[in-house]
Simulated scan of single mutants.
Amino acid sequence: MKTRFKPDRGLSRRMVATGFLLGLLYVVFVAVLIALTRSAFVAIVIAGALLFGQYWFSDRIALYAMHGKVVTPEQAPQLHGAIDRLCALADMPKPTVAIADSDFPNAFATGRSPKKAVICVTTGLLRRLEPDELEGVLAHELSHVAHRDVAVMTIASFLGVLAGLMTRIGLYGGLGRNRDQNAAVVTLIVVLASVVVYAVSFLLTRLLSRYRELAADRASAVLTGRPSSLASALTKVSGDIAQIPTRDLRQAQAFNAFFFAPALKPGASFGKLFATHPPLEQRLDQLAGIARELGRPG
């Protein structure tokens, strides 16, 4: 896709490396399944159908889950105007624009391709941010679209979906119904293999997710030329999220990997290894470094 977002070679290398490792795990996993169980074909077909649905309808699924509604330029002139300017700067197709009626301050991009992309912001974000801060967030999301991050993360998560499916089949199907000792042993091996593969794929996708957030921050700062605006938005949103009731945050945490900022209170993460986003301090340090590169105040 033609765009003025600079190619991120580091992001590309990590995507390729993660895809290769996940693919290698997938090949080994399927080989074990084929050797040990007769239900491997059915499981793969089911998982493939789930992947296809998640990939093809990702925009509709995300909007439905977040109660987002597509808005026209007449309904949201300022939001459309900002996205129009950024798309012109980036020389990329304009995505569909949506707003979710929620006080939760965040934004996300979804869709299987740049031509089918959707950028959704919440009313809470629109209410809290200044115009330059909002442009920083929107440029961050447009970078995800330009780099096809949503499609990559959807495909990368396929192995985890498959492993989880096989674990459930083994736990609630084979072990419960098969009284034959050999069949029970085989099922147990499949379950253990599923758990190991899921754990490895989980860590790999989290690693890729954290890097792509840093890459999107950098792309946004370079495109707008105002790293301080994005830093201000990150600081403001992270601070406001800390004031939101835990019950409301839990409802949003399923979309952590797609959000501009994680739906977590400070200190609520299970650690850097399992986080979908890099620490706020790391993101702010990177933006300060970019500001120095551009000769702008941090």
Rank of each mutant, 00 (worst) to 15 (best):
A62I: 15
L188V: 11
A31P: 04
F41E: 09
Y55Q: 06
G239C: 05
G160L: 02
L207I: 03
G48Q: 13
L294R: 10
L129G: 04
Q286N: 08
P93R: 13
G111Y: 03
G176S: 09
G271W: 02
T37V: 14
W56I: 12
I99M: 05
I290A: 01
G295M: 12
V28G: 12
L51P: 01
R206T: 03
L249H: 07
L21M: 15
A35Q: 06
S201I: 07
R296K: 15
A242D: 07
D217E: 05
A199K: 03
M92G: 11
S269N: 05
D59P: 04
S232P: 06
G68C: 07
D132F: 09
Q181H: 14
R168L: 15
K2Y: 12
D180T: 07
A65P: 10
L11S: 05
A139V: 15
G53E: 08
K272A: 10
L22H: 00
L126D: 06
V161Q: 12
G164P: 00
P227Q: 05
A199H: 08
T37Y: 09
K6G: 12
R112S: 13
V185T: 12
S39P: 03
A90T: 13
K272T: 07
A231W: 00
H67Q: 09
S209L: 02
L25K: 03
M66Q: 14
A156F: 14
Q282F: 08
G111S: 08
